[in-house]
Amino acid sequence: MATIMTHVAVPLVLRMGFGKAKVSNRLVILACIAAILPDVDVIAFKLGIPYASAFGHRGFSHSLLSAVIVGLFASSTLAI
Rank of each mutant, 00 (worst) to 15 (best):
H62L: 13
V10S: 00
A44H: 02
T77C: 14
G48I: 10
V70M: 06
G48Q: 08
P38V: 04
T77M: 14
F45D: 12
T3P: 03
A54K: 12
T3L: 04
P38Y: 11
A21N: 15
L64E: 00
S24G: 14
G17F: 03
A31H: 02
G17Q: 05
K20D: 15
A34T: 14
A52G: 11
R58I: 07
L64A: 14
Y51T: 15
S75A: 09
S66A: 15
I36T: 09
F55K: 10
A74L: 13
C32E: 07
P11Q: 04
L14A: 02
A31L: 13
I49G: 02
A31K: 08
G71N: 07
A52E: 12
M16I: 10
A9E: 06
G71K: 04
L78S: 15
I29M: 11
A21T: 15
D39V: 00
V8N: 00
T77W: 12
A54S: 10
R26Q: 09
Y51V: 08
G71R: 03
S66P: 09
K20N: 15
R15I: 08
I33V: 05
I80G: 13
R26H: 06
A54P: 10
L12C: 06
F18Q: 13
I43N: 14
V23T: 11
H57Y: 12
A79Y: 10
S66M: 14
V8L: 01
I4E: 01
D41K: 06
L64Q: 07
D39L: 04
D41R: 05
A21D: 15
C32M: 05
A44C: 08
V8E: 04
I33T: 03
H7Y: 08
F18D: 15
D39E: 13
A52Y: 00
L14T: 02
H57Q: 12
R26I: 07
A31E: 09
K46S: 01
V68N: 05
A31C: 14
F18R: 14
T6F: 01
L27N: 09
S61E: 07
A2L: 06
A79R: 12
I33L: 07
V28S: 01
A2G: 03
V68L: 11
N25T: 14
H57T: 08
R26G: 12
P50K: 08
A35I: 03
L37F: 08
V40N: 05
R58V: 09
